[in-house]
Nucleic acid binder design. Structure first.
Lengths: 337, 337
DNA sequence: ATGAAAGCGCTAACAT
DNA sequence: ATGTTAGCGCTTTCAT
């Protein structure tokens, strides 16, 4: 006994059959203007709200989608959530957010929970680790992967164009006169880091530059570690004069590790707060997160409306923000709070 | 026809009645060990997952809560989401996130949608604007407000301790020898800004310092506007030697507006990425967002488990992070990516 | 300890 | 254009 009015109460109040109320609720056509108005009035009078559980039980559609990511407090994952929520609400759907905290086991748990709640579809920022469960998943419910694929599993995907982005960074540094360009990135097993590192080497080759593993730093970002590495480079015969930072975490760790006046030039993948100010402005390629989220959600809703062709793989390109000009005043403000 | 197995399929497979399966699913006691095991086996064999809609229809409990905030891409709101999700998942509940984009109309819409989906409760970062709808809301469903109250509506609340935080900032600046301390904040109509401004004046009085409206800047944060204001202050007879920035947005706008070498000292409310590095480190009071989210969610689940006493009002205190020491190396890393 | 039947609130299918 | 009936998959009630 909820106390909440049901469709029967509305029907009685309006003096019609429940099916007529149902028709009004679902905007079906076969209702005369006058009864429709009467029903609407009763709905308002009783402050009636349809019970979504009952509706779901019949229609097998929840008008809710899940967004499973690693850590919503990460700016990129948070902005993605906003972009997805926007599309979802346009489709009159809600967004349920579940977090994996980078744990494949938890990933399976939260997805199972979402499935039992019958979400209509899933935007998934996967941990990346494949499993039998995940293999079957995409035949149970539409899934769109963002940021990276699930190892060994094909789904619709929306990624950023890592290769072109890094290519742009290297081109920029070469244009600035650098011939000795190092690479600072996160651990090599991450999908995006693989793509970005490959792109770095490809871009060097395109400019006839040597690809030298001694000026590559790829590991968990730690200020002290990186400071040592920089020190070592400085005292080496041919130190890098510029560095590609392959993630905003790498870039900010670099910023922390470098003396303020160090002349080395940094260019980073992903914009970050205050990048326009610090070290007189750091040039970056900025992912179009809004677009990634929008594309992922739209892909999902396309599937939900019956689109059943093969998997789509979308690459969203990034934009180079050249901050080499002057001490930052005019470059975009990356929402640094 | 879902194709998904139902409780009947499981019952048939295990050779028991549906009610027995239901008992197993709900961990009721009146089932023998042997049949319980048999039912569990059938559940696994059929890969059965209970249909949550049917369950909700009967039990009137969804094990899902809503988090309604303005903009999940705001770091504070995103971190709050994470903290709330953690507690929700501990209570085997999911978190549905809806955004108001600062629009009271949209706020009502998304809440209505959540209500019709029968969320068990709501953590609400309100737009702040009261309404008849919001007045009735807390009698419909448990609501905990964070960051600020709803105008004219009492609910459980969890806020940060704005007064003590600002007090700490002013004390810090006085300790650093400042006697002429200005205030830079967001528009005065915001609840948190009101509290912080009042606390600023109170703290000045406590130190026998004049409260001078000419060194107060409270409006939408705009770099050019603020630059002009700073210029005006510099050419005034008694310019401020230090500024309290009443939000991280104010602090970062200040950082953009100030010449790098300007000797004015800034202390800010809310930590922000790279605050440990920029201008040799900016001292801030850091909100304990994790704790605010945890407290809000726990308050909600306490209500859900039948706690029906009067409204609770929790204040979570912030921590001063003194970065006046040296060029940042040892101070906490505010997760600046 | 187990089961049969009723019904949660809605919509699909089939009347009229 | 409107109404009646059955049933979605589960839990509750009441048997046994």
């Amino acid at each position: 006994m909820t106390g909440r009015p049901t469709i029967h109460d509305v029907a009685r109040h309006a003096g019609v059959a429940v099916k007529t109320v149902s028709r009004v609720l679902n905007s079906e056509r076969a209702v005369s203007e006058s009864t429709r108005a009467r029903v609407q009035a009763s709905i308002r009078a009783l402050d009636y709200r349809p019970n979504s559980a009952a509706r779901v039980l019949r229609k097998h559609v929840t008008r809710s989608i899940g967004y499973v990511c690693e850590d919503i407090s990460e700016p990129v994952q948070a902005r993605l959530a906003r972009a997805i929520e926007r599309v979802a609400s346009q489709h009159e759907s809600t967004l349920t957010v579940s977090l994996t905290h980078h744990d494949p086991g938890l990933e399976q748990d939260v997805i199972e929970s979402l499935l039992s709640r019958q979400v209509d579809g899933l935007v998934l920022w996967p941990t990346g680790v494949g499993s039998r469960f995940l293999q079957r998943l995409s035949s149970t419910v539409p899934v769109v992967c963002v940021d990276r694929p699930i190892d060994g599993v094909e789904t619709d995907t929306v990624f950023c164009d890592n290769r072109r982005g890094v290519g742009d960074l290297v081109d920029f540094l070469v244009r600035r006169g650098h011939r000795r360009i190092g690479f600072v990135g996160d651990p090599a097993d991450l999908f995006t880091q693989q793509e970005r590192f490959e792109a770095y080497r490809t871009a060097l080759a395109r400019h006839d530059l040597k690809d030298d593993p001694r000026i590559v730093f790829r590991q968990d970002q730690d200020v002290d570690q990186l400071r040592k590495q920089l020190h070592y480079w400085r005292s080496s015969p041919a130190p890098p004069t510029a560095l590609v930072a392959a993630s905003s975490l790498s870039a900010t760790t670099l910023v922390r590790a470098l003396p303020p006046a160090d002349p080395i030039e940094i260019a980073g993948f992903d914009d970050f707060p205050l990048a326009d100010v610090i070290r007189s402005g750091i040039t970056v390629v900025m992912q179009d997160i809004e677009e990634i989220g929008r594309a992922a959600a739209e892909t999902l809703f396309r599937r939900l409306s019956g689109h059943n062709a093969g998997f789509t793989h979308t690459r969203v390109s990034s934009t180079l923000i050249d901050r080499s000009g002057e001490a930052g005043t005019s470059s975009p403000n990356p929402g640094g709070r």
